[in-house]
Simulated scan of single mutants.
Amino acid sequence: MKSIATILLLILSNAFMTLAWYGHLKFGEWKGIAKYGLIGLVVISWGIAFFEYCFQVPANRIGFRGTGGPFSLVQLKVLQEVITLVVFVIFSVIFFKNETFSSNHLIGFIFLILAVYFIFKG
């Protein structure tokens, strides 16, 4: 159960993180937000990132073996990176329709998934 809770919290965390890190590239197109300039976008992104931490910190606390969870620190980090990548791809496809993914991207993603396999195997 802690594994599932950790993964779900990491997915939520990454949804907010991706929105904070890359959403501002679209926020600037919105008339109401564009008038605030770069500083406004930074503040808005920072506010969104707050929610990332609201999910990330509990995910790591629940998931880390040192606090009673099922994952080592390295496993948590690799899991986090793969979730970040998956969330980013979904976000990119939905919000940035002009971005394309090539076979090189797919090969890179496969290698990252293989990294997860090898990290969890040991």
Rank of each mutant, 00 (worst) to 15 (best):
residue 48 I to Q: 12
residue 78 V to A: 08
residue 82 V to T: 10
residue 112 L to G: 09
residue 69 G to F: 04
residue 99 E to T: 10
residue 97 K to Y: 04
residue 26 K to A: 10
residue 98 N to P: 01
residue 56 Q to W: 15
residue 45 S to D: 06
residue 108 G to H: 05
residue 81 E to A: 14
residue 8 L to C: 13
residue 32 G to I: 08
residue 119 I to C: 10
residue 80 Q to L: 08
residue 110 I to Y: 01
residue 79 L to S: 07
residue 41 L to G: 07
residue 92 S to H: 05
residue 67 T to L: 13
residue 110 I to H: 01
residue 111 F to A: 12
residue 85 L to P: 02
residue 75 Q to W: 10
residue 70 P to I: 15
residue 114 L to P: 02
residue 31 K to W: 07
residue 40 G to Q: 01
residue 24 H to Y: 14
residue 92 S to M: 11
residue 59 A to D: 10
residue 63 G to C: 02
residue 60 N to A: 09
residue 99 E to S: 00
residue 68 G to A: 06
residue 15 A to K: 00
residue 9 L to C: 02
residue 1 M to L: 09
residue 35 K to T: 15
residue 87 V to D: 05
residue 33 I to N: 07
residue 34 A to W: 04
residue 39 I to W: 01
residue 119 I to F: 05
residue 72 S to M: 09
residue 11 I to C: 09
residue 92 S to L: 11
residue 2 K to A: 11
residue 27 F to R: 06
residue 78 V to E: 12
residue 75 Q to P: 08
residue 26 K to S: 11
residue 47 G to S: 07
residue 96 F to T: 00
residue 122 G to E: 05
residue 60 N to I: 12
residue 49 A to R: 12
residue 16 F to A: 14
residue 15 A to P: 00
residue 67 T to S: 10
residue 74 V to Q: 08
residue 86 V to K: 00
residue 44 I to Y: 08
residue 51 F to R: 14
residue 63 G to V: 11
residue 13 S to N: 08
residue 25 L to W: 15
residue 91 F to W: 14
residue 37 G to Q: 10
residue 38 L to Q: 01
residue 97 K to A: 10
residue 108 G to F: 03
residue 63 G to I: 14
residue 121 K to H: 00
residue 5 A to S: 03
residue 120 F to D: 06
residue 116 V to P: 00
residue 99 E to R: 01
residue 18 T to M: 13
residue 75 Q to F: 07
residue 45 S to K: 02
residue 83 I to M: 05
residue 14 N to Q: 12
residue 50 F to N: 10
residue 37 G to R: 07
residue 59 A to N: 04
residue 109 F to D: 04
residue 73 L to W: 10
residue 86 V to W: 07
residue 47 G to M: 07
residue 16 F to V: 13
residue 91 F to A: 07
residue 29 E to M: 13
residue 116 V to W: 01
residue 12 L to Q: 04
residue 122 G to D: 14
residue 109 F to T: 13
residue 64 F to G: 03
residue 35 K to E: 15
residue 69 G to N: 01
residue 18 T to C: 14
residue 32 G to P: 03
residue 15 A to R: 00
residue 15 A to M: 13
residue 39 I to V: 05
residue 29 E to K: 12
